[in-house]
Every structure is written in structure tokens, then in C-alpha cells.
């Protein structure tokens, strides 16, 4: 009786295994596509409150002055002067954990932020106030304000056939404007899906998968080296906002078709095709055919 049951289980073993593998693989891949959505960026007004500036100065003197010098005038090392970099630069480098940096000769790369939210606000306030304190240098770019995303994909202007490239005048931006600007100005370095790449001399082009809307906008205005600067006359605030929204969209794009390996391009697809497509089939023919 037991033997018969066992046998019956064997009957179903083959087909069940086929189903089971498919279900497991499928559900894993389904789940991989359903992670949490990134937070929307909020506009950050830099504090001009003197207590914040003072607290920022204290933090600066402790953590930054050894490289960037007294009152951001530049230090003995290759670290740049900070007098007129503006709050955008301070906020970008601090919220992405690029600063503080052990060795100024290294490329600043993304890390977990060293300072907490309040400390960063205070440091932002201090850096923004530096031109006033030192009395030399123009004020740097403020933290950019990102326009909201339009509710309809074609934008409130309803430009329809005329294309997306002219500003519609209203305050909101569309993903389409963002895609277009991203393709022209960003994809050549950061890759079409925002997965990053390499520059010459070993300089890393970071992935944009962790960048939030404000950080993207800040990066465009600041030009964190080796990235170039994109000023407001090159890329308007509207286009900047659209690009920032599109970068956030790329974190979880409405991109059907299964596990996303687009960030790695056709070579990765070839790897999957050879290993998981042809490889499995090779395994199958090893079983079907004779060996010897």
C-alpha cells in the first residue's frame, strides 16, 4: 500500500517538478518587480536663521575645515574652496554621503550620509551664508525647487502634436519632457536606464538608482566633478525638474516583460540567454541523449 503510494508520487514527480520550478521562479521574479516606490522630493528652503548658521559653523570647523580651510577659503590640500559653491552643492554632497571624504584625491562616491538631516540643514545654512560672512565671491546656486509632475501624461498644455519640447507655460512637467532631456544630456554617461558606467581614468559614473529628485536637480546645477555643470540657461528649471522626475521614474519604471536586466545591456542578455536558455537545453540533451 505504502509502496503503491510512493509509486504514485513518482508518477507525478516529473510534471510536478516542472510546475514547481515555474511557479517558484515566476513568483520570485514577480516580487522582484514590486519593491517600494521612492519618496517624492520636497523643496528645501535653506535656513537663514543665525542659530542654524552658527551650528553649521561648529560642524564645519570640526569636520570640514581641515581640508576646505577656514571659512571655506580653500585648504592646503586639493579640496576646493567652498565660499561660493552654494547650498545646492553642500546639500548634494552631504545628503548623498559623498562628503566628508577621507582623501580629497579620491573621487567622491555615494555613501550612507555621515550627518543627520538637521546637521545637514545647519551645514547648508552655513555654506549658503559664507559669501555674506567672508564678503567675497558671489552667492552659489540655491537648492533648486523641483516643479511637480503633471497629472496627465501629455502635460497641462495639451500640446499634442506640437511635441513636448516647448514649455507649456504651466508649472507642472511631464515624464516625456524628462525622457527627452535625459536621453540627450544624461544617458550618454548614466546609461539609458540610469545604471551608470565608467569614464576615462577610472572615474566612476554613479548609478542613479538611489538618487532622489532633489539630488538629481542639485547635481545638474552643481556639476559634482567629474560631471559637468548644467546651468539654468542650458537646461531650464522646467526641463531640470522633468529630468529629475524621469530619473525617479527609472527607479521603478512601468516596464513590462519580466526581470529587468536592461541596465546591463545586450551583453548581460547574452549571458542569460547562454546560461539559462542554452545551458538548460544542454542539460536537457545530456539527459535525452546517450553519453559515452
Amino acid at each position: 500500500m505504502i509502496a503503491a503510494l510512493l509509486r504514485r508520487r513518482r508518477v507525478l514527480a516529473g510534471p510536478l517538478a516542472v510546475v514547481a520550478v515555474a511557479v517558484v521562479v515566476g513568483s520570485v521574479l514577480f516580487m522582484a518587480g514590486g519593491a517600494a516606490h521612492g519618496q517624492t522630493g520636497q523643496s528645501l528652503l535653506v535656513s537663514t536663521n543665525s542659530s542654524d548658521i552658527l551650528a553649521g559653523q561648529t560642524l564645519y570647523d570640526t569636520h570640514c575645515e581641515s581640508c576646505h580651510g577656514y571659512e571655506g577659503k580653500g585648504g592646503v590640500t586639493s579640496a576646493p574652496a567652498l565660499v561660493s559653491v552654494g547650498a545646492a552643492a553642500a546639500d548634494f554632497y552631504l545628503t548623498t554621503g559623498r562628503m566628508p571624504l577621507n582623501n580629497p584625491a579620491n573621487q567622491a562616491l555615494r555613501h550612507h550620509p555621515y550627518f543627520d538631516r538637521t546637521q545637514i540643514r545647519q551645514l547648508d545654512a552655513y555654506i549658503a551664508a559664507l559669501p555674506g560672512i567672508t564678503g567675497d565671491g558671489p552667492p552659489g546656486p540655491a537648492i533648486p525647487t523641483v516643479a511637480p509632475l503633471c497629472s496627465s501624461p501629455s502635460g497641462s498644455g495639451g500640446s499634442g502634436g506640437s511635441g513636448n519640447r516647448s514649455g507649456s507655460g504651466s508649472g507642472c512637467v511631464t515624464l516625456s519632457e524628462g525622457e527627452s532631456g535625459f536621453a540627450l544630456n544624461c544617458a550618454e554617461c548614466h546609461q539609458a536606464a540610469g545604471s551608470g558606467g565608467m569614464l576615462s581614468k577610472g572615474n566612476v559614473i554613479p548609478t542613479l538608482r538611489n538618487a532622489n529628485i532633489t539630488q538629481v536637480a542639485e547635481a545638474m546645477r552643481v556639476g559634482p566633478k567629474p560631471m559637468p555643470v548644467f546651468g539654468p540657461k542650458e537646461i531650464s528649471n522646467k526641463e531640470m525638474s522633468a529630468i529629475a522626475h524621469y530619473v525617479e521614474y527609472l527607479h521603478q519604471p512601468a516596464s513590462p516583460g519580466g526581470l529587468r536586466i536592461s541596465g546591463f545591456g545586450p551583453i548581460a542578455e547574452g549571458f542569460v540567454g547562454i546560461v539559462f536558455g542554452f545551458g538548460i537545453l544542454l542539460f536537457a540533451v545530456r539527459m535525452i541523449g546517450t553519453r559515452g
Partner: peptide, 21 residues
């Protein structure tokens, strides 16, 4: 290809197709 990867530190342009710099 459009040789548009610009490195402002080294002032080099890189072409993403075949890495001409």
C-alpha cells in the same frame, strides 16, 4: 557615435561605443 561623455576633471571626451578618448 556621439562622443559625449565629458569628464570635467580631466577635460576628456569619451565615446561610449568604443571608448575613444
Amino acid at each position: 557615435c556621439p562622443a559625449g561623455l565629458y569628464n570635467v576633471q580631466t577635460h576628456q571626451l569619451v565615446c561610449p561605443c568604443h571608448q575613444s578618448t
